[in-house]
């Protein structure tokens, strides 16, 4: 893949705009978090649009609050949280990657933070830093079956509460329909949250 050439139609000039800032940020992150950072993928070395920081899940909250508030980073806007199912391979037994996309509303740069998880492994929630993470994490639980430790209300969001399995896992079939003859019951208890 060649995303090194600037592509004006797609805003491919990010490298010239932010390349220097990203290099500085990455070196600062390495200095501060050291061992906690597993891997860093930079746009010119790996086919990605923004730097990807792989972090150990124990340091995730620390790193993200650092990214949010430190001047020179200012990633104050949680753009999206999602996950990918990388499946267990011979190299690694860590099946899932949780992906955090950030945007800075003051400096307009973006970054991506990832954590790798084993199956049935829990990861800390982000709800206390960004309330917007609430539904995104519920969706990840719904679709991938990744549990978020400390989440106030971790239940299914798109699928029916009686659904079995997690549809976006690679081993879930495309037509894995489940039919419920009665509608999902209302739950007055949810009003207390």
């Amino acid at each position: 893949m060649d995303i090194r050439t600037p592509i004006p139609t797609n805003g491919g000039d990010w490298q010239t705009r932010f390349g220097e800032a990203w290099r500085l940020q990455v070196s600062q992150l390495k200095q501060r978090f050291g061992e906690a950072i597993e891997e860093i993928r930079m746009p010119l070395e790996y086919p990605t649009d923004v730097p990807i920081v792989f972090v150990k899940k124990e340091s995730l909250i620390g790193l993200l609050s650092f990214l949010k508030s430190e001047s020179g980073f200012e990633y104050n806007f949680l753009s999206d949280i999602t996950a990918t199912d990388e499946q267990i391979s011979q190299q690694s037994d860590r099946r899932f990657e949780v992906v955090y996309n950030f945007f800075s509303q003051t400096r307009f740069w973006r970054i991506r933070v990832k954590i790798r998880l084993k199956e049935n492994e829990e990861t800390p929630t982000l709800v206390h830093l960004w309330p917007a993470a609430n539904w995104a994490e519920r969706e990840i639980w719904d679709m991938f079956g990744i549990r978020f430790d400390g989440h106030p209300n971790l239940r299914r969001i798109l699928m029916d509460s009686r659904w079995e399995g997690h549809p976006l896992r690679k081993d879930y079939p495309l037509r894995g329909y489940q039919i419920f003859p009665t509608p999902e019951p209302a739950e007055p208890g949810f009003l207390e949250n």
Partner: peptide, 9 residues
């Protein structure tokens, strides 16, 4: 599509 990833907004 060649290997890689991008978040286009």
């Amino acid at each position: 599509v060649p290997e890689g990833e991008a978040y286009t907004t």
